[in-house]
Amino acid sequence: MIGNDLVDVEIAFSEKKSENRRFIEKVFSLQEQKLISQSEDKETTLWLLWSMKEAAYKAHQRIVGHAPKLNPRDYKCRLLNFSNLAEVQVSSSFYFINYTCTDRFIHSIATESSVVTVFEKIYYKNQDTKSSFIKDYSNKNGLAPGNISIEKDGFGIPFIIDENTKNKVPVSLSHHGNFTAYIFPLIKS
């Protein structure tokens, strides 16, 4: 299963969370707090860890199927010795994280294992990302956009629905500031 989270750096950094002790204690483990305080770029490290937790939360919620929760401290991040890769643990489940940090956004993608590949699309300053995504998704898969819709289940978890085939594909979307990111798993043939 999949999840993603995007942070708009301009908005996030303006909140100066790296100076907010109480916020940090509510969200991060002692080990993660250390990673932040010892980092040269505290804001980037803080928001990178946050986006990993959020992405893993979304993937985990899809598997377990629980109502929304606010439990960021239950998600424990571990940076791996390869650039852009990390791991997040929640109870006995592990999620594999692939992340991107640019000067404008931080984006984390969580999957159950490193063999799951996803298609990602990030929209910038786009008023109607849903229509744009449906168009892009349909083009990529050779489907008629008129048959495609995005619907949420009772827990607010979104899926792409094809009216024609009744096919249901998981999709994870994340919106922050000027950016909206969509990811969906690529079906292995």
Binding site: A12, E15, K17, V27, L70
Partner: peptide, 17 residues
């Protein structure tokens, strides 16, 4: 807070504080 007010989850921690 999430569904009706669309508060993002980082800001939901701010609400708690």
């Amino acid at each position: 807070f999430l569904r009706d007010l669309e508060i993002n989850s980082a800001n939901l921690v701010d609400v708690v504080l």
